[in-house]
Design a binder for these strands. Structure first.
Lengths: 187, 187
DNA sequence: AAAGATATTGAACACTCGTTCATTAATTAT
DNA sequence: ATAATTAATGAACGAGTGTTCAATATCTTT
């Protein structure tokens, strides 16, 4: 029981149209009517799938988050130093954001709802937790670990927002250095 | 040269109407037309002052931020321990958010634009910087201080978002304890 | 290949939006 | 108090919104 081809076609057309329009104008200026005109679908059909223009973006967002989770699973260079171990995986996040920079420029802009921030937070949070579980010995763990995890997640998200403000000029490597410095503080 | 009374009256009516409507329904469901009907002002007049419903909220937001800055200026209990010194002022933030809980519930909700978060960040950031300047001796300062300040700001904002998610159930005191614990990490 | 299921279409509806403009009303300055 | 200034009003506009419904087109199942 797979999805109806017509649905897939409609959604693909809408996503394509949105990405095309986003190169011309900000999200707020894109009307449903215009989006449907470009996508060559009826406006009524739009409402069968989405509530508003953001709905189409959220769909795309899900694939991006899925891609982030996937790239986290992949192996990456690991040093022997404990602190770096905990944090080595996090550079993947920076590479991911850099890769989808055009998208994150929208996600982090002032007019965009907090929704995306929260979802990214949850994702990064699960990464940090995972890293902790990998590198902590049992006697190393304590009740405050949960708290540390959140703390570090906030540090990462904060770095990303700062990066956004600087228009993604800092290199991924420097960003990662800053993060490692943060983590050393929170050792 | 003060502001025309009619302008003040119009803006007050709009703010009052918005606060009234916000008790009934979420911000997204409030149309300009309805807001004007409640405020008993012409819809055309609305556009002389604001661009959208969020504009009215932003106006109110400015007074709230001003109030936060004011309460930061007021004296507060100071301990003799350095770490607590740096952080003692920050409990004011928690009290402030608790005081305007109804408002922050909106500010931090998924559908609200990042705008408010960024402004709050800047404000808290200036507080943290100020605290550092107060409590750090000159030889204590180094190039990484700026970085520490941002780091701690992120910790505070992260705590606030966490607080929001838990519907502001945690007490201000416990929240402050958690913050002090964070800061001790980042000593 | 035909039948059944379901997605898309187009048209229509009342409504909101953002803007304009001449008219009226309220406020400020003289 | 009067004149000058400026804000608010009401009406109208073209466009977008969100929804409905019967008719049509497309896909899936047998």
């Amino acid at each position: 029981m797979k999805k109806d081809l017509r649905i897939i076609k409609t959604q693909e057309n809408l996503r394509r149209a949105l990405l095309k329009l986003l190169k011309e104008k900000p999200l707020e200026d894109i009307s449903i009517t215009e989006l449907c005109r470009i996508a060559k679908i009826n406006r009524g059909t739009f409402y069968l799938h989405y509530k508003d223009v953001h709905g189409v973006l959220k769909d795309y967002w899900e694939t991006i988050i899925a891609d982030l989770k996937e790239s986290y699973e992949e192996p990456y260079y690991q040093t022997n130093f404990k602190i770096e171990n905990v944090q080595a995986d996090m550079i993947k996040i920076f590479h991911h954001v850099k890769q989808y920079q055009d998208f994150y420029q929208i996600i982090f802009s002032e007019k965009t709802p907090m929704f995306y921030y929260y979802q990214l937070f949850e994702t990064v949070h699960s990464f940090v937790r995972d890293s902790f579980n990998k590198s902590l010995t049992d006697d190393n763990k304590n009740l405050k670990v949960e708290f540390l995890i959140s703390y570090q997640t906030n540090a990462i998200l904060g770095l990303l927002l700062e990066w956004h403000k600087q228009d993604y000029e800092t290199s991924v490597e420097l960003l990662n250095e800053q993060l490692i410095y943060s983590i050393r503080l929170g050792k």
